[in-house]
Amino acid sequence: MKGTAKVNYIKKLELKNPITGLNKIFDNRIRLGIMSVLMVNEEINFNDLKEMLEVTDGNLATHLLNLEENGFLKVKKGFVGKKTNTTYSVTRAGEKAFADHIAALENMIKGVK
């Protein structure tokens, strides 16, 4: 399932089960991966994140920007020698939203047992 199909699917689920906390922003695998990594690492730089998630530069940058615009992550630009070194860390809001998302997913599983 991709894009709108998946969004509709989540919406349908929300109608069926009144689960609050599910966040459309985390409906994307890469954004979900970025958040998972950031939750357990104080900060991480672009290249380490890229290696961990096995994605391309452009793809990763797009999703990072999306998360940043939503206020879920902080970006810090710095230098290591002459190279730029951009590090990312999760914000309070991001932490909260992600925790809620996980809790909602867990509730969905528990709901049917």
Binding site: R29, L32, G33, S36, V37, M39, V40, N41, I44, M52, L53, I102
Partner: peptide
């Protein structure tokens, strides 16, 4: 997936 990613990155 989330659990694996958290473990694998830390």
């Amino acid at each position: 997936d989330i659990k694996r990613m958290m473990e694998r990155s830390s």
